[in-house]
Write a protein that binds this DNA or RNA. Structure first.
Length: 270
DNA sequence: ATGCCGTATGATATACGA
């Protein structure tokens, strides 16, 4: 099988969103499903439901209440050695290597709190430090033979048309120049290709998150692109399509993030 | 402010999301 459908989705609690995940998987049939903000300890994770959805392989890393990531796969893989980020064990990263040698990294970057000043806000400092560590880590591992995919809720909307109003969000955490600068350094750390913008180039607006607080998220459409799919240059020719699936955002009691679907044709890889 | 909703927890208020 050379075709692979990869999905990244911040579900904002896997238990609260289980029915949505089941419905989405039934209609979109991902081969690899990367989740963020699962908000559940590993012992309480609803694994049986995922087995029923057809995922024979998984790796999960969660904690009580906050954070938590998971990867479900129909393709066999080897889990990558877990790594602590910023000296914490706060369940923000998992990685796997498929049999064709493609490594998939699933990240949940810290949101960063409200105040965009690392001296006044420890959460913002953590967010910047986390991105710095990502940069260093991928720089250290740089090799043209690497076949890497990086997905997840990176909590930064880097481009002007990744937000509904560049001007009005310049001082809002997720779109401040210092975050964009940090993300840009991470992106250069392994010559990452932005797979979403490969299919929807600027200046076309592209969002994956809409606040719960808008009265009508679809009508006001004040979104941000916080979720990302990046690939190393050697995988770029294998990108086939990309879609931000707005439908689950419109379901009852949704996640505030929409799933991002990317189709690959990995013929000749591995 | 776009703007007060949604998640989780030894909970009936609080932390956190972004």
């Amino acid at each position: 099988m050379t075709k692979m459908r990869l999905v990244t989705w911040n579900v904002n609690s896997v238990r609260a969103r289980l029915a949505h995940v089941e419905k989405f998987v039934a209609q979109s049939a991902p081969d690899v499903l990367c989740l963020q903000e699962t908000k559940v300890r590993d012992n309480d994770f609803p694994l049986k439901a995922f087995t029923k959805m057809g995922f024979e392989h998984h790796v999960i890393a969660g904690q009580k209440s906050y954070n938590g990531v998971a990867i479900f796969s129909k393709l066999p893989f080897v889990p990558t050695e877990p790594k602590h980020w910023c000296g914490k064990d706060d369940k923000r990263h998992l990685a796997i290597t498929l049999e064709n040698g493609v490594e998939i990294n699933n990240f949940y970057v810290p949101a960063g709190g409200d105040v965009p000043d690392p001296d006044e806000n420890d959460k913002f400092a953590h967010k910047l430090a986390f991105m710095n560590e990502m940069t260093d880590w991928f720089k250290k591992r740089q090799s043209k033979d690497n076949k890497l995919i990086l997905v997840g809720d990176l909590n930064v909307a880097p481009l002007e048309t990744d937000v509904w109003s560049h001007k009005q969000l310049l001082k809002i955490v997720s779109h401040t120049p210092i975050e964009v600068e940090h993300m840009s350094r991470t992106q250069s750390s392994h010559d990452w290709v932005d797979a979403m913008r490969h299919f929807v180039p600027e200046p076309e607006p592209l969002f994956s998150w809409w606040s719960y607080r808008a009265r009508d998220w679809r009508a006001s459409n004040k979104g941000r692109r916080l979720d990302h799919v990046w690939v190393t240059p050697n995988l770029k020719p294998h990108l086939k399509s990309m879609q931000v699936d707005l439908e689950p955002r419109g379901w009852e009691k949704p996640s505030d993030h929409a799933p991002v679907i990317v189709d690959f044709d990995l013929k000749g890889i591995g």
